[in-house]
């Protein structure tokens, strides 16, 4: 059974329905438009697409962090689209995320230990010793020294922060981790280390990944299937990344032609396909 299944997901931002104000609806911004997607156990799925194509939005919808405007999401056949925050707890622990911008992804007032502790204390790990033990375990899994536990995010490097992010996602022993461009701010060597780390964790723990990336060479090495997102819609989908290079879709060809970039900010010329969308 699929770990995750999305059917006809759409997300429209800002459809104003103010009362006392203007009446009627304004058309909002359609960030995601009828996307269906599924991820099998142990699969490394990739999601690619240019900046603003809706990758992060889709990730938030899949994890139930935001409610879709239309469509359903299911975890192992259980529909959790309409579940309320507290009813989703069980499923949340199975679906975790590593966030795109590691600096904004951590409460600056929390130490690393508190960051990893947050999911633990929410899931009935009542004993402090058990939680401390688990924090130590997780730090070791992601290759961080035990002394990191008492540091604050601003005291860590980008690579270390990304490891903390992975650690937080691992804490609850999830089945699927969505990695939203986890390495876009890291240099090439550290990027390689992180890929190795994710691969090791996958082998040890039998995880599935949804890997969001700009870096197609990385995707081609690391992932099984690939979905190409364009302006909130699926442009193409391949069950094997190796088929990607044979694509005749103009948008995909353009993505392939773009030189792998270190960081979106360093990109000199944006892709031309949807310039009206910025």
């Amino acid at each position: 059974m699929k770990v995750l299944e999305a059917i006809g997901l759409s997300k429209v931002y800002n459809p104003r329905h103010s009362w006392l104000g203007r009446s009627g609806r304004e058309p909002g911004l359609t960030a995601i438009d009828g996307v269906s997607l599924s991820i099998a156990p142990g699969e490394n799925a990739a999601l690619i697409g240019e900046s603003g194509s809706g990758k992060s939005t889709l990730a938030r919808l899949l994890l139930g962090l935001e409610k879709p405007t239309f469509g359903r999401v299911r975890y192992r056949g259980i529909d959790y689209t309409d579940l309320r925050m507290k009813d989703m707890r069980g499923i949340r622990s199975k679906l975790q995320m590593v966030f795109q911008n590691s600096y904004a992804a951590f409460n600056p007032m929390f130490t690393v230990a508190q960051i990893i502790d947050e999911p633990l204390r929410n899931y009935d790990c009542d004993s402090v010793e058990m939680r401390t033990q688990r924090i130590r375990e997780v730090l070791e899994q992601v290759g961080l020294a035990a002394s990191t536990a008492h540091k604050y995010p601003h005291e860590l490097s980008g690579g270390q922060l990304q490891r903390v992010g992975i650690g937080r996602a691992l804490a609850l022993r999830p089945e699927l981790i969505v990695c939203d461009e986890p390495f876009s701010s890291l240099d090439v060597t550290i990027r390689k280390q992180m890929v190795t780390l994710l691969q090791e964790l996958k082998d040890q723990l039998g995880l599935s990944y949804l890997f969001i990336s700009h870096d197609l060479s990385l995707v081609q090495r690391f992932c099984d299937s690939v979905t190409v997102l364009q302006r909130g819609r699926i442009a193409e989908r391949y069950s094997s990344v190796h088929l990607l290079k044979h694509s005749s879709h103009p948008y995909t060809r353009q993505l392939l032609a773009a030189v792998p970039i270190q960081h979106p900010a360093q990109r000199k010329t944006p892709l031309q396909v949807q310039s009206n969308h910025y």
Partner: peptide, 22 residues
């Protein structure tokens, strides 16, 4: 609008916890 609020939701924290602790 910061990501750590999304992360807190993903961690299973309640609205109350998020409002106060974060």
């Amino acid at each position: 609008s910061r990501d750590y609020i999304q992360a807190a939701i993903a961690s299973g924290s309640s609205h109350g916890t998020i409002m106060v602790r974060h």
